Amino acid sequence: MSDAKASGRADKRRRALSGLMTILTALCALSAVAVLLIILGYIVWRGVGALNWRFLIETPKPVGEGGGIGNAIVGSLLLIALASVMGIPLGIATGIYLAEYGDNRFGKFVRFIADTLTGVPSIVVGVFAYSAIVLPMERFSAFAGGVALAIIMIPIVARTTEEMIRLVPTNLREAALALGAPQWRATLDIVLPAAASGIATGAMLAIARISGETAPLLFTAFGSRFFSLYLDQPIASLTVQIYNYAISPYDEWHAQAWAATLVLMALILAINVTVRFFTRRRY
């Protein structure tokens, strides 16, 4: 009987400790979500007053004449698209190599470089792109900005792709190889579709990261007060325009900076929801 009572008391203590830890972790999660909601709510509160249709389609104008961020929206979309075209395929290819063939000295070196680049300040990437592209071209350009943002994307996509591919069950690979498929075909037709959702999540994280970058674009794309789709010319972006308006002494530009921040947040959310939707439909 004494052994049964001791076992019962130990079981109650374990249950109580488990319940306490569950409550603590739930409170931590609630705190994190609450902070995020407070930040988002404050941005909406400060930015929604300056939002209107003209603000979304017009170019910047002098203080007192209104103006908008239409050119910055187009420029940001172009920079994100350009960086994604360069960064996502290269990042996915690097991740595939690290997951499937990277258990060697060269793979460890590439993995170390990717981890190092993930922690490098974005302004360092901007200075590198300025030295490597802007100075030889003798001008700021959208192409230089896209390259800088792609460099930031590559290690994020590569490491996420590697981890997602490693989570695919080994028996799927073995089944494909047993049927006579070469390893590259098994990777493309079996492993990648199985890891597609996780890879898409990594791509979204990378896009969200570059969407909020300002420092690299100050050294590369620089900015413009006009609409531009030329890759060899300076181009506007939401982050740079927010920065310029936020440090100005004018209340009108401060209000427009908050509104532009709200638009940027909505843009990132729309990109994430779109990628999630198409990923869920296909897989």
Rank of each mutant, 00 (worst) to 15 (best):
I113K: 11
Y230H: 04
A93T: 06
P136Y: 00
I235Y: 03
M164G: 03
H254Y: 12
G66C: 02
N52R: 11
A132H: 09
M86I: 13
A195C: 03
S237F: 10
M21A: 05
L167I: 06
A206I: 00
L36S: 13
F143E: 01
C28T: 03
K108N: 14
R166S: 11
F277T: 05
A260C: 07
P62S: 12
V48D: 04
T25P: 00
L82Q: 14
Y42H: 09
I268N: 04
G212Y: 05
M204Y: 00
M86H: 00
S237C: 12
F278D: 14
I199H: 13
Q256V: 05
R139Y: 08
G223K: 04
M21D: 09
M204T: 02
F140G: 06
L192Q: 05
T22R: 02
E163N: 09
K5V: 15
N272E: 15
N171W: 06
F128D: 06
G102H: 01
L90W: 15
L90C: 14
S31K: 11
A16S: 08
Q241L: 14
G66V: 08
A148E: 14
A93Q: 12
L238H: 06
R281V: 10
G146Q: 01
L30K: 00
P169Y: 01
I38A: 10
A150I: 04
V157D: 04
G49I: 01
R185A: 13
M137R: 09
T239L: 10
L20C: 11
G126K: 11
F112T: 12
L262M: 08
S248W: 02
V33I: 13
P62M: 06
V157S: 02
V127Y: 06
A6I: 08
P249I: 05
N71T: 12
F227H: 05
T279V: 01
L36F: 15
L238K: 04
Q233M: 00
L40C: 05
L179S: 07
V168Y: 04
V157P: 03
P121L: 07
A34F: 14
L51W: 00
A181N: 11
D251L: 06
I92Q: 08
V63S: 05
A236G: 02
G68F: 03
S31E: 13
G119H: 01
L27G: 01
R280L: 07
W53D: 00
L179I: 10
D11L: 08
P216V: 03
G180K: 05
K108W: 11
G107K: 00
T279W: 00
D189R: 05
A83S: 14
A34P: 09
P136A: 06
L229A: 11
I271Q: 04
G41N: 04
L238V: 14
V33E: 12
T170D: 05
G8C: 12
S122N: 15
L218P: 00
L36V: 13
R209T: 09
L135D: 08
L51V: 08
N104L: 01
I96S: 01
Y283A: 07
L117Y: 11
I207N: 02
R15Y: 06
A29N: 05
M21H: 02
K61Q: 13
I43H: 10
R280Y: 13
T170A: 06
I151C: 11
A195L: 09
I23P: 03
L192I: 15
